[in-house]
Write a protein that binds this DNA or RNA. Structure first.
Lengths: 150, 150
DNA sequence: CTATATGCAAAGTCTTTGCAACCAA
DNA sequence: TTGGTTGCAAAGACTTTGCATATAG
């Protein structure tokens, strides 16, 4: 059994909640799907796999997954909200292409270092952070040779 | 006349749009209000100043202000969206207290440096970025002497 | 005059909630 | 049994849009 399923089951038991088929299906699809799916897109996939599962169950299950650290909610600009797997995933940040919508990731230890320095200086206790860069990805910029420099 | 009003008027003329009392009122209140106000809060203030101005006019005007660079839209986690003045304001990032909701700002040149380095490496053309740190502000942590260390 | 702007209400989004039926434990 | 769960539909919160009227240029 996957670690994530174990964690989820343990979390449910610990909270006195019940383990249901729907919850397992949502977790499975969540883990199998590409990252950065919108709730709607995930919900559509869940329905394809098991047409009986309602929209609200997907939402409710995602909240539970976020509650036990298996999912992380991201709200990007331009109205997109998505949940992404968070277990065993190192902290990272996002690059969002404003042309094609592709979301990619990057990591850099300096970001965390700056955050800690700032927080220390301002006596702010950090719990979470996010950084996003919006712009045009390599593909959408077209072939390098044809680009106008700006 | 404030620079912002000049810029706005110039923008409107250039786009073939009209200069109206409502637009001026919204701009004025937007500039006079504390930063990081939600659209609803701003709309309420606009109504107080001029009860006839509709909600949609506020929304439409804010979009215009964002279009000419006078306002910047920020969507924070936990459902808060706000516009903040952007003209003559240096790029900065936000600290959001998850207890009291206070939003403060910080600046650090390293953030931009990391962004540029990452983007260069990935051939991504950056247009905008944001960084937010969520946590507990100094006030909400209580008196320093009484805090449990963790 | 004429094209844009306005206010209202209605319609969209996206997400949450109330509820009767259901089902793990 | 019994208390959490589900799907549905309805309700919410927030934002945009359609339209008849008003108005800047």
């Amino acid at each position: 059994m996957r670690d994530e399923l174990k964690i989820f089951k343990k979390y449910l038991k610990q909270k006195g909640l019940k383990q249901t088929t729907q919850r397992e299906v949502v977790l499975k699809l969540f883990l199998e799907s590409p990252k950065h799916l919108s709730v709607d897109e995930l919900s559509r996939r869940v329905r394809e796999s098991d047409p009986g599962i309602g929209h609200s169950t997907v939402y409710r299950t995602l909240k539970l997954l976020a509650g036990c650290g298996l999912a992380l909610e991201s709200q990007f600009l331009y109205g997109r909200t998505c949940f992404e797997p968070a277990w065993g995933v190192e902290p990272h940040h996002h690059l969002i292409c404003t042309r094609c919508g592709t979301i990619s990731e990057f990591r850099d230890p300096l970001i965390g270092a700056v955050r800690d320095k700032i927080c220390k200086g301002l006596d702010f206790k950090p719990e979470a952070d996010r950084m996003e860069v919006y712009g045009v990805c390599s593909d959408c910029q077209g072939p390098r040779e044809l680009r106008e420099e700006d």
